[in-house]
């Protein structure tokens, strides 16, 4: 599909697709922030020079096809079980770099137990947590992370906390535990935040290389399709509304 472009005369290439990504196009909807986050992970793998010894764990959700997008090995875990699968691989092969990439339905709903216990054990893995506040792949049902008042297909009148519960702040919960080394919340709705998110992802991988233990980067993402917004509106909604409930910044960092 993608063809190698000859460098125009007098110019130097300063940005191109990371080596860790294959030529397969992403299967995400137009404008979905999953694509930015997926690329940032690939850039981090490139910069650390770990492609040949990295294993990713794909979730159930819109990122289920990650194995097609990346040039490293992948295992696709049962829904929510990515941290358990990562634990097994990392313990059997500590020389490998093991990361999970999971949505909020995967990590913070059906997979809450696996996530909490992997964090509590301080497993030396890297977790990329893509929080878009909804079940994207299945058509936009409420997730534990859905904002109060937010309309979804299962909360057509808006999420009512007394009936449906409050947004689950999984990163804040995990930051209370002794096990984790690094828990941070980032976003990718504009260039400066993308630069910061990239730094956090790099740190979460470096922590694993340094044997520091469980590192999780939550990244506030979008679902323009199920939020019924344009990609630009969805980005603004994260910046203005979602960050009010899920504030950005480091929640735990053992240094």
């Amino acid at each position: 599909m993608s063809v190698e472009v000859a460098v125009p005369k007098g110019y130097t290439r300063v940005f191109s697709k990371p080596r860790a990504l294959s030529d397969a196009g992403f299967t995400y909807c137009p404008g979905c922030h999953h694509g930015i986050i997926t690329r940032l992970v690939a850039e981090a793998i490139d910069e650390l020079g770990i492609l040949e010894r990295t294993v990713g764990i794909a979730p159930v959700g819109c990122a289920v096809f990650l194995d097609r997008f990346f040039n490293c090995d992948f295992v696709q875990a049962a829904h929510g079980r990515a941290c358990a699968v990562a634990t097994g691989i990392k313990r059997a092969r500590p020389d490998l770099v093991v990361f999970t990439y999971q949505g909020d339905g995967d990590l913070a709903a059906i997979g809450t137990a696996e996530t909490v216990h992997a964090a509590n054990r301080g497993e030396n893995i890297t977790v990329i947590f893509v929080n878009n506040g909804i079940y994207g792949m299945t058509g936009g049902e409420m997730a534990p992370t859905t904002l109060p008042g937010q309309r979804t297909t299962t909360t057509p009148a808006g999420r009512e906390p007394r009936l449906h519960g409050y947004p689950l702040k999984i990163s804040e919960m995990l930051a209370q535990l002794d096990g984790p080394a690094y828990i941070t919340r980032q976003a990718v709705f504009d260039h400066p935040h993308i630069v910061k998110a990239k730094r956090a992802i790099l740190k979460a991988f470096r922590n694993q290389l340094d044997g520091k233990g469980f590192s999780l980067v939550e990244i506030l993402s979008t679902c323009p399709t199920n939020w019924r917004m344009s990609p630009a509106e969805a980005g603004r909604w994260v910046a203005e509304e979602v960050t009010e409930v899920f504030p950005l910044g480091d929640l735990k960092d053992v240094g």
């Binding site: 940005f15 990504l21 999953h34 993308i194 990609p231």
Partner: peptide, 10 residues
């Protein structure tokens, strides 16, 4: 900011 890695910059 491109979610589909569609741009190369020189």
């Amino acid at each position: 900011v491109c979610p589909d890695v569609a741009l190369e910059i020189y």
